[in-house]
């Protein structure tokens, strides 16, 4: 492997990792606040992708601009899901939570199929295959843009959770639901906020990946799995951890494909995942919950 091949893989890994991070952040917030593993996460992301696609084809809104519409809409969608469905099973048996989100995922993806048919939708922008050249290395324009947006969103989210009252209430709920309730925090409102934010993040990730990927109703499941790996790797409930986890997975996939082989790179991802679980079960940046 020459240096330029290595650098090329490293850079694309970091950039694609940014999108992964966003998916992971959404999942980690939902889990942190509600202790619910959201099996419908990828399907929520898929909704964001369709939203982006139709905003682009019908109204010619650029995907990177359209996130200002996607984020609030997806937030409402997430809050709706939480209020109507998820809220009813908080604190019940964990198997019911798993099952409910699986069921919701089936409903979301198959409704999408009825609405949009199962055809692949491709969003083509003028920059879909555009790149900057840095010596021998080429850097994807859309991925760079999405990486920058990811960084900005993550920073805003971090600030929101750390510095605002609502953010602190959400964090308090995540730390100890009952104590938060006793302190007068409206826990169910915080859960709704958290699920809304989680869905908005997943939807944004969908929007950001749309110009370079493709869209179909079942597209979500692969990303759900990826989100699981990222969140556990980074530590469940930790936003910085999920960011780190996403970028690590991006790099491992990308560099692994050239250093080992493209068919074993996913095994490598899962192996690292297990290794982290064994050595530090709480994840890279999570608090121990053993």
């Amino acid at each position: 492997m020459t240096l330029s091949v290595f650098l090329q893989s490293l850079i694309s890994g970091i950039l694609i990792g940014g999108v992964y991070a966003l998916i992971g952040i959404g999942l980690t917030i939902i889990f942190g606040v509600m202790r619910v593993i959201n099996f419908a996460h990828g399907d929520i992301m898929m909704v964001g992708m369709y939203l982006t696609f139709y905003l682009f084809t019908l109204f010619h809104v650029d995907p990177f601009v359209s996130i200002v519409i996607t984020i609030p809409l997806m937030f409402l969608f997430g809050a709706f899901l939480q209020k109507v469905f998820i809220n009813r099973i908080i604190g019940t048996l964990p198997q019911n939570q798993i099952l409910l989100t699986i069921g919701l995922g089936l409903i979301i993806s198959n409704s999408a199929m009825l609405a949009f048919t199962s055809d692949y939708k491709i969003l083509t922008t003028s920059y879909s295959s555009g790149s900057f050249k840095l010596g021998e290395i080429s850097i994807s324009q859309p991925l760079t843009a999405s990486f920058i947006i990811t960084v900005v969103i993550t920073a805003i989210l971090y600030w929101f959770l750390m510095k605002t009252d609502t953010g602190q209430a959400i964090r308090a709920t995540a730390q100890d639901r009952e104590a938060a309730q006793l302190m007068g925090i409206n826990v169910s409102r915080m859960s709704m906020l958290a699920f809304g934010i989680g869905a908005a993040m997943a939807g944004t990730a969908g929007a950001l990946i749309s110009p370079t990927y493709y869209i179909f109703p079942q597209v979500g499941s692969a990303f759900t799995l990826k989100a699981f790996v990222i969140t556990v790797l980074g530590g469940m409930g930790s936003i910085v951890g999920a960011t780190l986890g996403g970028i690590i997975i991006g790099i491992v996939e990308s560099v692994g494909a050239v250093a080992i082989s493209s068919d074993w790179k996913d095994v490598l991802v899962f192996a690292i995942f297990l290794l982290v679980l064994l050595v530090k079960p709480s994840g890279l940046l999570g608090r121990s919950r053993m």
Partner: peptide, 12 residues
């Protein structure tokens, strides 16, 4: 080079 169906990144 074999790849997993549906992967988003083949750049490397």
């Amino acid at each position: 080079e074999k790849y997993q169906k549906g992967a988003p990144d083949f750049r490397s």
